[in-house]
Design a binder for these strands. Structure first.
Length: 430
RNA sequence: GCGGUCGUAGUGUAGUGGCCUAGCACAGCGCUCUGUGGCAGCGCUAGCGGGAGUUCGAAUCUCCUCGAUCGCCCCA
């Protein structure tokens, strides 16, 4: 029989986060946890799976999103369900389902975990990726917009990013946006011939998107285009002005980007994107982006509830940190400083017991019980960068002591067995 | 979903139709050295992404497929 060797591989666009990369992930999570806890955002867990409707309703039928880019499939029972492509609609669903409008408003929550999009994978765009999402529901005040931008900025600053750029814009609401769209479409129609092929199509499907087309010829056309900020209704205008005043007060390095828009309809008023510029001024993809979604709660069947949030792209941040070789926790601080080496059956049994005694004292100790030769154990200890090796063999076991080897100097000494834990405790401290 | 480029042990690579039973380096494991690490020597493990085809002969050419990457669409 010939055995067919099937090579297993991960699904397209799905990555492992290997042990060596965990410190990055951990650092990012810690930063987010610290920030959210300081600002009193509470953790919420929402399911990875939801009815597809939760997301498709939110996204609307404006784009390819539903049919092309959601990870959706049918259950055995025939329900159309979907792996979450982002957190916001799930959080909103939860807010509605649990009657959180009865809680003191605003409800400030944050969630974190894997999300899924059925895109063609690209750098910084994978089918499974980690995101954190901060949401403030039931708050119409511009101060919350400012606070959320501040928090996003804080997280990135904590992580060591130095050239953070914040772009903000306001895209109005149901009052003024339809009106603005008309003006915009009117303008672009008059210049139709100068638009790229895609934008001629966008003119019908999603005219706001023409504003961030990268084509040279569209750039020129849009330079003369009407800007959202000039066509906001009174309320939106006042709101945006106040948001900017907060940002000024907070001394955040923001710029207004009149071309910044969102693809989905539920967004209202403030939108922002935060990215990191490289030394040569190149901008990496957005590391965090968000804005107001005053219409979403109602859209999903709840009361009319203003809300604002941000999605923080953990995977992207991680990738960039690794690319820039940014610092994580110092390595030596992580690993144990003591290695327990054993020789012979009896000593091995006893050293497993000793290992537990160290554990009781919460002193980290490395071991390699599966190796027998002292040589390979010392070699292992060396690779781990451990300073102290406790050698426990036949001789030691019989006479009730243990040999301590200082890997830096090579000096060895003997410690009686009942004093080992205490003595090592002192060594590790110093 | 569309287009370009790419795919050799864990990693980095050599190899451009027969000198390939696929070479090298690093890593891993082991031995020299059954109670002493870092050095050295020796050895072992492990690979042409997968499948079809062309050919006397394929890592090398063709097609399909899977994956990666870059760009487009879309972007929550």
């Amino acid at each position: 029989m010939t055995e067919k060797k099937v090579k297993l591989q991960s699904l397209s666009g799905m990555n492992d986060v290997l042990p060596k990369d965990q410190p990055f992930l951990k650092k990012i999570q810690k930063s987010i946890e610290g920030t959210t806890s300081y600002y009193n955002f509470q953790k919420i867990e929402v399911p990875v799976l939801e009815y597809a409707e939760v997301f498709s309703k939110a996204a609307g039928d404006t784009s390819d999103i539903v049919e092309k880019e959601m990870y959706s499939f049918r259950t055995k029972g025939g329900d159309l369900i979907c792996l979450r492509p982002e957190f916001t609609p799930g959080v909103v669903r939860s807010y509605i389902e649990h009657g959180m409008h009865n809680l003191p408003q605003p409800v400030k929550v944050w969630a974190s975990g894997p999300c899924f999009r059925h895109d063609r994978p690209q750098k910084g765009r994978y089918r499974q990726f980690f995101q954190a999402s901060l949401e403030a529901l039931g708050d119409k005040s511009p101060s919350i917009d400012g606070q959320i931008i501040q928090m996003s900025y804080d997280v990135l600053k904590d992580l060591g990013f130095k050239n953070i750029s914040i772009q903000v814009n306001s895209i109005g609401d149901n009052e003024c946006r339809p009106y603005f769209k008309k003006i915009l479409v009117g303008y672009f129609k008059s210049k139709r011939g100068s638009l790229c092929h895609d934008c001629q199509r966008r003119l019908k499907e999603n005219p706001l998107r023409i504003l961030d087309c990268k084509e040279e010829k569209c750039q020129q056309v849009k330079a003369g285009a009407p800007q959202t900020v000039d066509h906001l209704c009174q309320l939106c205008h006042a709101h945006f002005k106040q948001v900017l005043e907060f940002l000024d007060e907070l001394e955040l390095p923001y710029v207004i980007n009149p071309y910044l828009v969102r693809g989905l309809d539920y967004y209202t008023k403030t939108v922002f994107e935060i990215s990191e510029k490289s030394e040569i001024g190149m901008v990496y993809g957005a590391l965090a982006s968000g804005g107001r979604y005053d219409g979403l709660v109602k859209l999903l069947g709840g009361r009319d509830t203003p809300a604002c949030g941000v999605g923080i792209g953990i995977s992207r941040i991680m990738e960039l940190m690794m690319e820039k070789e940014m610092k994580t926790e110092k390595k030596p601080a992580e690993g144990p400083k003591i290695f327990l080496a054993q020789l012979g059956e009896m000593a091995k049994r006893k050293s497993m017991k000793l290992f537990e005694e160290f554990r009781d004292e919460k002193i980290p100790v490395a071991e390699s019980f599966s190796k027998d030769s002292l040589r390979s154990q010392l070699s292992a200890a060396n690779k781990m960068g451990v300073r102290w090796v406790l050698i426990f063999g036949q001789r030691e076991a019989l006479e009730g002591f243990i040999t301590l080897r200082d890997m830096e100097s090579g000096a060895q000494s003997e410690i009686t067995l009942d004093k080992v834990v205490q003595e090592m405790k002192n060594k590790v401290k110093s």
